[in-house]
Amino acid sequence: MSSLCRIGVLQLADSAPVLVAHARDIFSRYGLNIQPVVMPSWANVADGLVWNGLDGALMFPPLAIMTALGQRGRAIGLRPGLPVSRGGNSIVLRGQAAAQSAWISEPDKKKAFHTWQSSLNRKPRLAVVHLYSTHYLILTRFLKKISVCRNTETDIVVMPPARMIEALLGGEIDGFCAGPPWGADAQLRHLAFAVSGSAATVPDHLEKMLILTDQWKMRYPDETKRLYSALSEAAILCNQSENSASVAALLSAKQENNGLNLPEKAVRSVLSDGKNITETMSFNTHIQTPELSFGWMIRDMLREGWLTPDDLTKLSALGWC
């Protein structure tokens, strides 16, 4: 058996390929010793990569880019890895059927947003999973599209995806943009309704990527290739509708039983044969050009002022652009 590789994941349905490859012994069939590590937040994922707590993680590119540049800790070698999932992020707002009907029937979405907001009696608090996330960029694009000013008309708060439902229930937030299955779960619990998401904002965008530290890749170059192959095989399994029930059962199992403790019904709804109440995620490990994969993210990150032209030179050397 090869050396241990610790891969960080969060409680999200798009972590499925790592969990499936582990549970179905795909990793061990490729001679790999992989340990999925469920992390409490994205800050922990980034710190784990920087301070030798993880060898890799399933994460969104903006956080990997900012971590590579040392914008939230020490700069470390993080390059684009294996694409794993596409889409799946939902934007939901607090409310039930009546609020949803009002939203749908109003063609002017700025007006619809203000009508919805008036029922809250406060500036809407919208949550994202981390500042440096695809979710923040997607929510920003959505608000801009409906002519709502993010900085003055909303309060953006940050919390891990698995806390969103509790925060919505407790009145801490009024909506969120998060990965699967949390948008679907909010709808199934009649807490919120979907207004947009990945598909309407950046169709088929790259969402999670397996990022390995340069240190691990340089030490085990052959294992990196086998890890990509194993994860690609698991991704194909996760896409097949005949496996949806078993994938959902695995993801909803308790963490001590190698699951993620996710709500099963919500997970079923975001898998390929789901009822598509929000966004369907898909798994695709095909490697595209940096422009197709990260172009829109990097442009948005420049616009936010997170990146400078000097950073682009560094990112180019690392293969991000």
Binding site: D155, V157, V158
Partner: peptide, 13 residues
């Protein structure tokens, strides 16, 4: 888990 929020504090109004 609310470390994420502290991470982002500088940039969020």
């Amino acid at each position: 888990s609310d470390r994420d929020a502290l991470d982002s504090v500088r940039a969020l109004s």
